[in-house]
Design a protein around this nucleic acid. Structure first.
Lengths: 164, 164
DNA sequence: GATACAACTTAAAGTCACTTGAGGTTCAAG
DNA sequence: CTTGAACCTCAAGTGACTTTAAGTTGTATC
């Protein structure tokens, strides 16, 4: 039974949709505050931590950098920040999210069409004659040719560093 | 003038929409074959290389992993392989994109509500009463206090290279 | 032919945001 | 009191490049 009230790190991880090592990492880089550690050495969390971490996890799921998330989180939690600045930064983050939504919808459309063409024209034949696949190799960019990453726009369409 | 016909690495990079270091990296991991090197030490490419690299770059734009791309490339070159496998890879990628779309819409809603609350409750001035979404960060602002030395050199205090 | 300079070469280290591993400690159940 | 899951720290590994350092080649101009 839990006499010391509060969530252990595993419970927090489950509730926020992440993992215990990730939580420790966030604490290490200062993205999460150091939690209380009653009795033994183990960290204990509360529902506020669940909400904060869930917010962070969502931002990370959409490729906001740790620095961006740090900015957003501290902005949301700082009562002394100028309200107008809070609103402005929130709005610009919203603009970025909306731009990403547009990009992602376009990517979904392209992929859906690709799979659809596959289903229709490639009924089990050899893949060397897979026309949708071959089409990818023909010249002319599907989207504007990728720029030098150093000049990448504010809103990259895809992260090149995501893992799966 | 180019007596030795063939593209140099920079020209290939421009035509395929990527960079020279990336091409060398792909060669190193065996995603691209080692090209001819007539005369001096420099790599020379032809139009087949442009097509192959364009294909690879486009797959990466679709956020396929390097392993997925490797699979697709060998599928494309193997006359005995099944077109259905190509479709499966595309479909699983589509599933991932659709899941991301759902999450991104949820994030957009959170941010839009935040900005909306800002606009309504914070009518200018240094508002100590501005606490929209306070429940997300009730335990106070997260300060990038003492961090792991590894990360310290990267981000001194403000984001220098705001990559995203 | 000399010279300047961009574009090329390699190898190695750096980057981001975790993830995994090794080796040990704590805690609730049986 | 023992078992075993869950916790702890610290270090090293991962993916997909990117950057850096230090040297070489190719071409255009004088």
């Amino acid at each position: 039974m839990n006499i010391e009230s509060g969530l252990k790190i595993g419970a927090l991880a489950r509730l926020a949709g992440t993992t215990a090592p990730t939580i420790r990492y966030y604490e290490q880089i200062g993205l999460l505050p150091r939690p209380v550690r009653p009795a033994g050495h183990q960290r204990r969390y509360d529902t506020a931590d669940v909400q904060r971490l869930t917010f962070i996890r969502r931002c990370r799921d959409f490729d906001f950098s740790i620095d961006h998330v740090r900015e957003l989180v501290s902005l949301l939690g700082d009562p002394s920040s100028d309200c107008k600045a809070v609103q402005d930064i929130g709005q610009s983050q919203l603009d970025i999210v909306r731009a990403k939504l547009l990009e992602l919808r376009s990517l979904e459309k392209m992929l859906a069409e690709f799979v659809d063409r596959c289903a229709k024209s490639c009924t089990g034949g050899p893949s060397s004659r897979c026309r949708p696949l071959a089409k990818l190799a023909r010249s002319g960019p599907v989207k504007p040719t990728r720029r030098d990453p150093r000049h990448e726009s504010l809103v990259p369409s895809q992260s090149r560093h995501t893992k799966r």
